[in-house]
Simulated scan of single mutants.
Amino acid sequence: MASPSYREITINGLWKNNPALVQLLGLCPLLGVSNSAVNALGLALASALVLICSNTAVSLVRGVVNTAVRLPAFVMIIAALTTCIELLMQAFTYELYQILGIFIPLITTNCVILGRADGFAAKHDPARAAYDGLVMGLGFGIVLVMIGALRELLGTGAVLANMHLLFGPMAVNWQLTLIPEYKGFLLAILPPGAFIVLGLLIACKNRVDEVLAERAKAQQVEVPVLSRRVRVTGVIE
């Protein structure tokens, strides 16, 4: 099986096969902790790190793991890496770790991570596996942060609140109040708000895909027409 190019991996991870907008994987953490930008970014970084490391590890051991124990072995690798990330968060971002709660250990069972380990990393070299983990983690994280930022803005009128929980004292004043004296919109930061915002993002992506497909089709139609005109002109001359 031919290995995909890095360009193909990038396009698939960020757009064509985005885990959140296309595959609809990892919806539990995607919707559960995306009520603010800092929560979303914290989980996005943790998930991306586990995804990169697990893809690399799975690719390295793919030739020595028996098929019968392939999935349990992959889960053990992911669980070990998740535990390392969990301990790091307890040490350096304890308050954010407490807020994210059960969603950090649940990275172990995130369908995005296990799916990439079995569907891609187990079939390709470590370099491509690591890059696939980076791009897929980035694609998942971008959507997660977008949902968190939009919900925070709609719910409170501000974004980037409490970023010091992730970046320390230097981020205390990062909050941007875009709508002063905002009364708040409770639905946006409640669970139904996550479904609504995710649905809007999926609708926007689908519309962009439709426009791009229409443009590509129009260009394909124009090329034969121009070719016929050139041939006719040549005959007349």
Rank of each mutant, 00 (worst) to 15 (best):
V159K: 00
I113L: 12
R116T: 11
V223N: 09
V221S: 08
N206A: 13
A48D: 01
L200S: 13
G148P: 02
A44V: 00
L134I: 11
V223R: 13
I189A: 06
L160F: 15
M136K: 03
A149F: 00
E210C: 05
A213G: 06
V22R: 11
P191A: 10
N110P: 01
L176I: 13
A216P: 06
M146H: 00
A121M: 08
N35W: 08
L190D: 07
V61A: 10
I77K: 01
T82E: 06
T233K: 13
S36V: 00
N39H: 10
G155D: 03
L114F: 11
Y131D: 04
G184R: 07
G42N: 06
A46P: 03
L30P: 01
H164K: 09
I142K: 00
A40T: 00
A149L: 09
G32N: 07
I202W: 07
N110Y: 01
L114C: 14
T82W: 04
M136C: 07
I236R: 13
I52T: 05
C204Y: 10
Q219N: 14
I189W: 01
I179T: 12
G119H: 07
T109E: 01
L226D: 13
E95K: 12
R215E: 15
C111L: 12
L88D: 02
W174Q: 07
L165R: 03
V197Q: 01
D118S: 14
L14R: 04
L154W: 11
A44F: 01
L24D: 08
L81K: 04
L41Y: 00
L166D: 02
A129K: 00
F195T: 09
L212M: 15
A46E: 02
D118I: 14
K123I: 08
T82K: 08
V112E: 04
E237N: 13
A2R: 04
I107Q: 11
L30E: 02
V235R: 09
F120W: 03
G119F: 06
K16G: 02
L187M: 12
G137T: 06
L31P: 06
V145I: 14
F195N: 08
L200Y: 12
V159C: 04
A129N: 04
G32D: 05
R229Y: 12
L114G: 15
V232I: 13
V208C: 06
G168K: 07
L106Y: 05
I104Y: 03
L51K: 04
T177E: 15
F120L: 09
S34V: 02
T67W: 10
L96Y: 02
L81W: 03
L96T: 05
R215S: 14
A40F: 00
Y97T: 07
V75F: 15
A40G: 00
L134H: 06
G115P: 08
V208W: 13
A2Y: 03
V143F: 07
V69G: 06
L27A: 04
A40Y: 00
V211H: 10
V221Y: 07
E95Y: 05
G63I: 08
W15I: 11
A44P: 01
V65R: 05
L134M: 12
K183A: 14
G13S: 03
G13N: 02
R207E: 09
A57T: 10
I85G: 02
G168F: 05
Q219W: 08
Q98K: 12
E95P: 02
A218R: 15
A68G: 14
G115N: 09
I99S: 11
V50Q: 03
C111G: 10
L71P: 07
G141Q: 01
L81N: 03
E8Q: 15
N18A: 02
A194H: 05
A122F: 08
R70W: 09
G199N: 10
